[in-house]
């Protein structure tokens, strides 16, 4: 990887994190007690990484673009640590259904979204 691609990848990750912060704040509602932002962000980000990876595998997208958009932007946009801590917090509050959605549910939904994205991207 060239230094320029590495710097672009890191900056794209910063923008992804910023987008996550703004979107999560906009999705937050006092009335909805489930942290819907992290779920929506991780599912959409996983779908898009599937598409990007599929496009790169089909040689439609250059590998540099895959690195910057995939590992960079979408890597920074999605987050695993918040999902872990939110799941533990929900379980501590005895909200077991929400904790299950935030852990196993999110895992299954992101894998399915990613598989769909891979199929879509590879078909392009």
């Amino acid at each position: 990887m060239t230094p320029l691609v590495f710097v672009a990848l890191a900056l794209a990750g910063g923008l992804g994190a910023g987008a996550r912060f703004v979107l999560d704040g906009m999705l937050w509602r006092r009335s909805v007690r489930y942290p819907v932002g992290t779920l929506l962000i991780n599912v959409t980000g996983s779908f898009l990484l599937g598409v990007v990876t599929g496009l790169a595998l089909a040689a439609v997208l250059p590998v540099e673009a895959q690195l910057i958009v995939g590992s960079g932007f979408l890597g920074g946009y999605t987050t695993f640590s918040t999902a872990s801590v939110e799941s533990v917090r929900l379980a501590q509050e005895r909200r077991y259904g929400s904790a299950l959605l935030s852990s196993v549910g999110m895992l299954v939904l992101t894998i399915v979204a990613s598989a769909g994205g891979l199929l879509l991207g590879s078909a392009a």
């Binding site: 994190a17 991780n42 996983s46 890597g75 992101t110 894998i111 990613s114 891979l118």
Partner: peptide, 14 residues
């Protein structure tokens, strides 16, 4: 948040 990632986990698994 930027260090950890969910999309790579999901896509690698898929």
């Amino acid at each position: 948040g930027g260090f950890t990632t969910y999309s790579a986990l999901a896509t690698h698994t898929a």
